[in-house]
Write a protein that binds this DNA or RNA. Structure first.
Lengths: 117, 117
DNA sequence: GCGGAATATGCCTGTCAAGGTATATACTAC
DNA sequence: GTAGTATATACCTTGACAGGCATATTCCGC
């Protein structure tokens, strides 16, 4: 579980890790809080947190025996950056190429912002 | 390779699949073109395309013996949607203040020993 | 019909991640 | 010191996916 896992996309491919990240949006949490809210075993939470920490998704501070984890933005911005070129697919403005491709579309109509077919 | 793979995040966790998607941004392509440009074997390309098609990332039209694949927007919008709540992490003016408030959000730490491990 | 080109699929195998259990570590309170 | 709490790590097993190779399918031209 704590192996290579180089790419940020592989990190967020795991549903429990996404759940942890989403939980941390509202505020930082201790391992026990995450364990309780997401109904995962404590070692599982710790292992996922380790993966997330080593990938830069979260950081922790020590508070007595507890460790408080909170989000770090950088890796998710990588995802955002990769996603950027695809936004033209659903942006309101439809350029020439997309209109061309839409004309070739043989599948049943779907909700599109702009014209097609 | 052609198993469940339910979530869109698991689909885009595979580097070759991300490469295929990125390649299709500029225009639709045949399997042979993808195979050539990305230097993958033909069965590998076809299998990845099948995964992408079944997940709704791409669709294909038949052109003689060829099949032309092009992007479909919906699944990537799911990624975009999941990412949305995290944008507050890097929207400039809230950053420092909200992260400070996050720490106050839970029960106040007692004597804090600094930093991560 | 036949042969060839383009793509899809089946089978097999190596690899690796995810989780469980048990244990280790770190810290607090007494 | 001891006991208790919170978290991390080691070891192991299971399962799934990615890719290679061989083969099947589909379509074209002749």
């Amino acid at each position: 579980m704590l192996a290579a896992l180089e790419s940020v996309f592989e990190i967020i491919a795991e549903p429990n890790r996404r759940a942890i990240l989403s939980l941390l949006v509202s505020s930082q949490r201790s391992v026990g809080e995450i364990e309780c809210q997401l109904r995962m075993s404590q070692p599982t939470v710790s292992k996922h947190l380790r993966v997330l920490r080593e990938a830069g998704f979260v950081e922790s501070t020590v508070d007595a025996q507890r460790r408080l984890y909170r989000l770090k933005p950088e890796p998710l911005r990588e995802v955002e950056a990769w996603l950027a070129p695809f936004r033209r697919l659903w942006s309101a403005h439809v350029d020439a190429l997309e209109r061309y491709l839409d004309r070739m579309d043989t599948s049943p109509p779907k909700k599109r912002k702009k014209k097609k077919r």
